[in-house]
Design a protein around this nucleic acid. Structure first.
Length: 938
RNA sequence: GCCUCGGUGGCGGAACUGGUAGACGCGCUGGAUUCAAAAUCCAGUUCUUUCGGGAGUGUGGGUUCGAUUCCCACCCGAGGUACCA
């Protein structure tokens, strides 16, 4: 019998699905282990070979952990709300729910073919009402909470109201909008309900406000900061401009410090942690108040260098600030206004592309230096951003390069406060030790760190400033002007948002007959006829009934893509619970994800937002841990290898790759499926593939047409997509799984090359042959030879270590070496093959199941115990062991064969020469590597 | 510019604490088997050589008995970020 992978794989996939083999239980005497993949967005294009890379790795680990005796949770689901389904709906009128369903079915089919051990009974889909009910429920919790900075946690907004009633807000330390007014208890109690609600909105963790947003005209929606790349939309690449709009936001800034601190406690890649740190962007400094000459107003600036306060020679404000209008003098009015309009019109991209151009206008106003009382000219300039700090900077040209350039450009005076430095060409930005301050009154002679402390203390004492920490992280905009997302469970009464009662959830997406925004610019939900809330009946009713008494209009925006993905990992623990988002029992059993696998592109989006929600739900006591993923691994992308044919300029002649030198050709991509494993093109197929090639003439070399190759991102438009179904047909899922792992380290990006498949495929065939010596399954019951045992145990050791280190590529090398050795030893002993089958099961599960059942086992191999290695079989027969002590000693001696590491250690320590060298010192560690060198570490 | 990671044969990539660089696979070369092909198996494959050897892990230095590995400077590539005060 030959290795019939198609039959075997089908058989075991059916077996697993029929027996629900991988269903996890929510309690067990075994230790728990939770392996999670980032769930996919089911796109219409289906999967290509790059997608399952992470799923294969996590599946190997999950299966390995099951063998090791863990109760493993390994779920999968779909992030099924999103833009492409909606755009498809706009084009075709087909409801996104239908396309989504179709795509999911296709995904499921493809995933099933690869033999994943997912527990599908826990599947989640973010677009299902049973799921988004809880996304809405979390939204309402956020709406009903504020962040208490004293206790450093989120609490119910009703606690805040109690404090307002008692003491007003003057002494309350809570995260709120910058423009929140101060009031006393008496004030509060005299406020109207409407006014009270307006104030509370400034404290709620999700709130509505007029904000400057990233507006994308072409897409008709606003975008979050992490959805913008180079000033263009991440999806589609459309230009993005700034616009003021009323929007829902999440007060993620309240959690900035905890999000930063939490990174220390989790085992995530350093690069990813660093990205999050940069995104949060903590900087320590001071807020300094400057009075404006002849005005009541005070300008507050944030600076990280208060020590350079005496070097301030001017001040710059962001042009968008309201204050600019107030303080501008009559003479400068015109110039300022034209500058302000000009900057408002520039798109984000324009502004970024000419960073080097210095522009700005003098306002005619002067600020008073808080320490010297000198008059300082106030300028506006677009290098100052309204959204960071206070939107105003104190300019110290001698210590900051931008200030220096600005001052030089506009001929503003520069004062050097650093002794013994040369600032004739550029600013002195170093804050290292050695340079002392001068011309700085009481700071004279001090260095950076001392001056910082002294000046902050002085500012605080005189009331002209205070030490502060500032974060770059801005509140996350939460509304999207889209149809295919979670409805926000809010209705509007007297212009203010009111939550619908949480026991009325889910608030289901209404039917609309047009998925585009309405003619007056309202989001697509504005097209719904039945989208009003009846507070008496507590249900959705017809818009025509809106009376502003009992029936009110519902929110038209929907939630962004990251809403549903910010908590799904908790839902898997208890996916079918209809009473809670996850039960206390389930979450206290599974607690958190032990291993999370996904791409690093989510570093500043999903992976930050989800940590935020986790911390919030933890604060309210719904979850037992503050960080939801203990360990995270980023899998690298699999790149495509595009195929090129070369058209001779101006002709229909296409030259084979070897013939293009010296000829003027244009390379054109062809579909990689039209090229065989030796890079030879199927010319007839190309002619049929696209009409532009119908009349093509192909010029061969050595009788074939060879294509050129180039490594690029795998994508449909580059015709370099390789379909996993095709690979499963040709080589089998087990070969695909092993080959994807063999390609290289998981974290690394690496190019796909189908030709390499034959290597791992023939490994499986060889292994099959071992157990089928004369084409029939037959194993010897005799005791295996010492060589075979050594081979087996070497493999067990290497494979085990490599799995633990997620080094799956070297694991597969070990398997290959093992089978090559066993083949040359003609070993078909049951005592070797049986443990090897278990060892291989995580990688090639169908293959192993088949051998396992041929071995006469009734139960699935999933329950087989992972083999242990025996050290005594591992010592190589080697003559020479050079021994060194801390790199200072070296000699060679003979050792007899087949000793354990322990025995070798004893021999070395009893050796006269070793004793002499050690000279009474105790070695800390003796490292024995078979066939290699022995190190004695002192 | 800044931050992070990386640079090893024709290619993907090995080399654990410094200890025989190039494991394993692809490709290539030769051979066996076959009427032939597929499949399979065996041998070879860093470069160079006067067949003794010599050179070699981006470049140049350093530490060390010994460096792909550690230190310094530089070059190149990938990803992130960008007037962040």
């Amino acid at each position: 019998m030959r290795y019939n992978f198609l039959e075997i794989e089908k058989k075991w996939q059916n077996y697993w699905s029929k027996n629900q083999t991988f269903q996890a239980i929510n309690n067990s005497s075994k230790p728990k282990y939770y392996v999670l993949d980032m769930f996919p967005y089911p796109s219409g294009a289906g999967l290509h070979v790059g997608h399952p890379l992470g799923y294969i790795a996590s599946d190997i680990y999950a299966r390995y952990k099951r063998h090791k005796g863990f109760n493993v949770l390994h779920p999968q689901g779909y992030d099924s709300f999103g833009l492409p389904a909606e755009q498809y709906a706009i084009q075709t009128g087909q409801h996104p729910a239908i396309t989504t369903e179709t795509n999911i079915n296709r995904y499921r089919e493809q995933l099933d073919r690869m033999g994943f051990s997912f527990d599908w009974s826990r599947e989640v889909r973010t677009s299902k009402p049973e799921y988004y009910k809880w996304t809405q429920w979390i939204f309402l919790l956020l709406f009903d909470s504020y962040y208490d900075k004293k206790e450093d946690k989120s609490k119910s907004i009703s606690d805040l109201v109690i404090q307002f009633e008692k003491d007003g807000n003057e002494f309350i330390l809570a995260e709120c909008d910058a423009d929140t007014p101060l009031f006393t208890a008496d004030n509060w109690n005299s406020f109207s309900a409407n006014k009270k609600e307006q104030i509370l909105l400034k404290y709620r963790l999700t709130y509505i406000s007029e904000t400057e947003v990233n507006w994308c005209e072409e897409m008709g929606t606003i975008l979050a900061n992490d959805e913008i790349v180079n000033g263009m939309s991440e999806r589609g690449g459309y230009p993005v401009t700034k616009k003021k709009m009323k929007q829902w936001s999440m007060r993620i800034g309240a959690y900035a410090e905890r999000l930063l601190q939490g990174l220390e406690t989790i085992d995530w890649p350093d690069s990813l942690k660093e990205m999050q740190r940069n995104w949060i962007g903590k900087s320590t400094g001071a807020l300094v108040k400057f009075k404006v000459k002849g005005h009541e107003d005070v300008i507050e600036v944030f600076t990280t260098r208060p020590d350079t306060l005496y070097g301030v020679t001017f001040m710059t404000l962001a042009p968008e600030l309201d204050l600019v209008q107030k303080i501008t003098s009559e003479q400068q009015k015109e110039a300022v206004n034209s500058y302000v309009t000009q900057t408002a019109q520039r798109s984000e991209r324009d502004r970024m592309s000419d960073v080097k151009t210095i522009s700005g206008v003098f306002t005619g106003a002067y600020a008073i230096h808080p320490l010297t009382d000198e008059e300082i000219p106030i300028w506006i300039g677009d290098y100052v951003l309204a959204g960071y700090g206070t939107g105003a900077v104190m300019a110290v040209p001698c210590g900051d390069q931008r200030d220096y350039d600005f001052a030089t450009h506009f001929n503003i005076s520069i004062k050097n406060i650093f002794s013994e430095t040369d600032i004739s060409k550029e600013a002195y930005t170093d804050k290292g030790a050695g340079v002392k301050l001068q011309d700085s009154d009481f700071l004279n002679g001090m260095e950076y760190s001392e001056a910082m402390k002294v000046v902050i203390k002085y500012l605080e004492e005189t009331g002209s400033g205070k030490g502060t920490i500032n974060y770059r992280l801005r509140d996350a905009i939460f509304s999207r002007q889209r149809y295919w997302g979670e409805p926000i469970p809010i209705y509007y009464k007297e212009g203010l948002p009111v939550p619908i009662p949480s026991d009325c959830l889910p608030l289901e997406l209404p039917q609309v007959d047009n998925y585009l925004p309405t003619s007056d610019g309202a989001p697509p939900l504005g097209n719904a006829n039945k989208w009003a809330w009846d507070i008496k009946k507590n249900q959705v009713v017809d818009n025509s009934l809106i009376d502003q008494v009992n029936i009110f209009p519902l929110e038209l925006n929907t939630m962004p893509g990251w809403a549903g993905s910010s908590w799904y990992f908790n839902r898997y623990m208890d996916a079918s619970n209809t009473a809670e988002f996850v039960s206390k029992e389930a979450v206290s059993y599974w607690k958190e994800v032990d291993l999370y696998l996904g791409g690093s592109e989510h570093a500043t989006g999903h992976l930050l937002y989800s940590r935020f929600w986790q911390k919030f739900l933890f604060d309210l006591g719904f979850l037992p841990v503050e960080e939801y993923a203990k360990k995270l691994i980023n899998q690298g992308m699999i790149l495509g290898s595009s195929a090129f044919i070369y058209r001779k300029k101006g002709t229909q002649e296409y030259l084979s790759k070897g013939l293009i030198e010296g000829v003027e050709v244009e390379p054109i991509r062809v579909d990689v499926s039209l090229v065989n494993l030796s890079d030879e093109l199927d010319c007839e197929a190309v002619k049929k593939w696209q009409s532009q090639f119908e009349k093509a003439t192909f010029i061969y070399e050595n009788g074939v047409y060879k294509v050129g190759r180039e490594v690029e991102k795998m994508s449909k438009s580059k015709y370099n997509v390789v379909n996993p179904d095709q690979i499963c047909d040709d080589f089998g899922a087990d070969t695909l799984r092993m080959y994807e792992m063999f390609l290289g380290p998981i974290e690394q990006a690496k190019p796909w090359n189908t030709a390499g498949m034959s290597g791992v495929h023939s490994f499986l065939k060889k292994m099959w042959k071992l157990s089928h010596p004369e084409n029939d399954f037959s194993l010897s019951d005799e005791a295996p030879s010492p060589e075979s045992l050594k081979t087996l145990h070497q493999t067990i050791k290497k494979v085990t270590e490599d799995i633990e280190n997620f080094s799956f590529n070297t694991c597969i090398s070990a398997f290959m070496i093992c089978v090559n050795e066993l083949s040359s030893q003609k070993c078909n002993h049951k005592l070797i093959i049986e443990p090897l089958t278990v060892l291989l099961a995580p990688f090639a599960p169908h293959f192993s199941e088949e051998i396992w059942s041929l071995l006469g086992h009734d139960e699935s191999i999933v329950y087989a115990e992972y083999p242990m290695y025996e050290e005594k079989y591992l010592i190589e027969s080697t003559k020479n062991y050079p021994v060194s002590f801390n790199g200072k000693m070296r000699f060679t001696r003979e050792l007899s064969l087949d000793l354990t590491a322990k025995e070798i250690e004893e021999i070395i320590l009893s050796d006269e020469q070793t004793k002499k060298h050690l000279d009474g010192r105790q070695p800390k560690k003796i490292i024995v590597v078979p066939g290699k060198i022995i190190n004695i570490v002192g």
